[in-house]
């Protein structure tokens, strides 16, 4: 054990150590390994989707509308003869982009507000707290609908709306995590070393409160994807013919009654898989960023 760690303290060992740690986290919990594999699949689909798919997702073909899944069209075709498989794969990028951007904004703004509130307490804390309570008081999906409807039907607004409804979760979490560490010994020691408040907050306390936030980010990603799809399902945000899971489910829903189930089921499954992956990913991600697990 001692020989292992002393050998791996060199600089070039850092990457190898990370890979070994990654492998350990994977093998320790097979569910995490499955989640990571799915995650990689989703990322590949998002990055290279348009080049990988067999058909142009926007090309209509009136000769082959509403065909059932076959070797030629794996997920069948829709009412305009577009290939459902191609559309599902290509849609990954848009859905993931909305979710990632929204969660990133929510994380940065929310955790900054929360960390400041937790560190200074008093009025800062009270004002931020009440602000977050106000957001939480609305039914969140309805609030998002309202924001998009009021601000205009664009993708940016979907992102802002999703970010705003996710803010309170990060703010509250960061506040608690920072508040419990405010009086830690290493924070006092940092003060004695001549660190100003913002330095202590940014370099001592905040990095140490990251692991639980990682779980929150991951869970939130799934939720944000669902939220974006939900908004476009009811006709807000993304507009046809852009391939997007929510719209595809909405369009396909009309055909379920007449027996053409593949139009709605496959994008729905893709949506479910994405949400499922991010939910599973949370724990693995925490294990990965927690230095205490890295022994």
């Amino acid at each position: 054990m001692t020989t292992l760690t002393s050998a791996s303290t060199t600089k070039e060992g850092a990457l190898r150590r990370f890979v070994r740690h990654l492998l350990y986290v994977m093998t320790d919990n097979p569910v995490t390994a499955v989640a990571f594999a799915l995650f990689v699949l989703i990322v590949i689909a998002a990055l290279f989707g348009p080049w990988l798919v067999p058909y142009n997702p926007l090309a209509t073909d009136s000769s082959s509308t509403l065909q059932a899944p076959s070797w030629q069209h794996w997920f069948g075709t829709d009412h305009l003869g577009r290939d459902v498989f191609s559309r599902v794969v290509v849609a990954t990028r848009l859905d993931l982009m909305i979710a990632v951007t929204a969660v990133a904004i929510a994380f940065v703004v929310g955790s900054t507000l929360g960390a400041i509130a937790g560190f200074y307490g008093g009025w800062t804390d009270r004002i931020t707290g009440r602000l977050m309570d106000t957001i939480m008081a609305f039914p969140l999906f309805v609030l998002a609908m309202g924001i998009v409807a009021a601000a205009g039907n664009t993708i940016e607004n979907i992102i802002y709306a999703t970010a705003i409804i996710n803010l309170p979760f990060y703010a509250r979490m960061a506040r608690t995590e920072v508040a419990v560490r405010r009086q830690a010994g290493y924070v006092q020691a940092a003060r004695l070393s001549g660190n100003r408040d913002w330095r202590i907050l940014a370099f001592q306390i905040f990095p140490n409160s990251l692991p639980p936030m990682m779980v929150q980010i991951s869970l939130n990603m799934g939720w944000a994807i669902l939220n974006a799809a939900g908004l476009s399902f009811i006709g807000l945000g993304v507009s046809p013919p852009t391939p997007e899971w929510g719209i595809m489910v909405a369009e396909g829903a009309n055909y379920i009654v007449s027996g053409q189930w593949w139009l709605a089921v496959f994008p729905g499954l893709a949506l479910m898989l994405a949400v499922f992956t991010f939910n599973l990913l949370g724990d693995g991600l925490r294990d990965l960023v927690d230095p205490l697990r890295r022994t």
């Binding site: 010994g185 290493y186 020691a189 940092a190 001592q204 140490n208 230095p291 205490l292």
Partner: peptide, 9 residues
């Protein structure tokens, strides 16, 4: 407490 007084990261 030497453990508490060092930043774990």
């Amino acid at each position: 407490d030497p453990t508490d007084s060092l930043n774990p990261r």
